[in-house]
Design a binder for these strands. Structure first.
Lengths: 220, 220
DNA sequence: TACAAAAGTTAGATAAGCCTAACTTGATTT
DNA sequence: AAATCAAGTTAGGCTTATCTAACTTTTGTA
């Protein structure tokens, strides 16, 4: 099915919003806010996507993606994340620069391109933000990502992403040399303010605030 | 100036057509044929591009690109050709596959991406078809490309492209191991049928037909 | 439970690109 | 130089995607 960029963007938004809802659905207004349009535009598009069997939707009710819709979304995310890896690994774009350009690249239509790119990048499993890259067949292994603040004491974990992606935070991370793949062990939690004493695999240790630890995502 | 993909495609078409006209201009109908639209659509767009100062145009007359228009065109061509190199060199796309995907990639908007890509590719001078890649500042060194059949005897030259890009021809080239960069010396011309005896830098020599030699482009 | 506020939809406009049909201009040919 | 034909333009319509303003449904709470 040949979709316009606009349609793809709606699908992507619906996917993102419904994935983080316990009932796997979302609403007109949420979509409008996310893609910066007004609710009537969303209403129109939902009718269109319903006809195309990409969403399940009845007016005044909430929306869900159909199986097809979900597949479409995952393919777009796959392309997005592969391009992010390319930009980061090969062209030395920083964490916070990759997203914007990948937003454009994700709409390029060529299966061959996607597959060749994936191969060229060495079949990466995660993008530069630590989000998992779906396979060509749409399998998406959901990494059980925790906040650093949720880690058990004494267990070594690995940074796979951030929650806050403001440039202040990213810059701070860069400054203290924490990036994707950095190995961290939580040594102690200070009861007073919940800050953590952590050690990096390189040997040295630091104290980080609760706020910091809440915004660093890790897998054990 | 932020242009739509459609506008960019018109500019590119006008550039290509006017470059191959002795008076550096082109016509409504020529444009319509090239980009597969009808003349009225072209008329509309020409009015629009005139307002944006990208073309010089009076109705019922022929069109020329302004200086700005030409710069825009060259930047698109630059991106197109860099992506072609990427697809060919890094992702192993064949000569004839690169164009279609590059048509999409050329519209990605990010100066940084273009510059980084160029660097990553090692500042290539030619695309996989042997066409020269404009510099970031828009300089386009027009390679003086000749047909192999026009080469002087005894001079070694380098394959930079083909005129005929049919898959039969490309396949034949592949078969006899001739590609971009292959070094060739013309040893002798047979008066009877104008076929050429040539030697490849690897040592071995062959006879190629006039038709073959007319379709291989070289620079000395 | 009723009713106001929030959420969502319809109606009617606008802009970009495209089209066909009808008209105008300019070039060619006698 | 006039007539004809090709080239080009205008008029009016269609589609996609957007908007504002006005209306309807749902919800949440007094």
């Amino acid at each position: 099915m040949q979709l316009s960029q606009t349609e793809e963007n709606y699908i992507k938004a619906i996917y993102a919003l419904s994935e983080r809802s316990p009932s796997f659905d979302t609403s007109t207004n949420e979509i409008a806010v996310r893609i910066n349009t007004k609710p009537p535009s969303v209403s129109d598009m939902l009718r269109k996507l319903t006809v195309k069997k990409l969403v399940t939707y009845q007016k005044y009710k909430r929306v869900t993606l159909t199986k097809t819709g979900r597949q479409v979304a995952i393919q777009i995310i796959r392309k997005h994340r592969l391009w992010e890896v390319f930009l980061h690994d090969k062209l030395q774009f920083t964490w916070d620069e990759v997203h914007e350009v990948a937003e454009q690249l994700e709409h390029i239509q060529s299966e061959k391109l996607t597959e060749r790119l994936e191969k060229y990048l060495g079949y990466p499993k995660y993008d530069p933000h630590g989000d998992p890259i779906p396979s060509a067949t749409g399998e998406l292994k959901e990494a059980k990502r925790l906040m650093l603040s949720e880690m058990e004491m004494g267990v070594t974990c690995q940074v796979v992403g951030v929650k806050d992606s403001s440039s202040e935070f990213l810059q701070y991370l860069h400054q203290i040399d924490v990036g994707i793949g950095t190995k961290i062990k939580v040594l102690e939690q200070i009861a007073f303010d919940h800050s953590l004493i952590v050690s990096f695999k390189k040997g040295h240790q630091t104290t980080v605030s609760k706020k910091f630890a809440d915004n660093v995502l890790v897998t054990s």
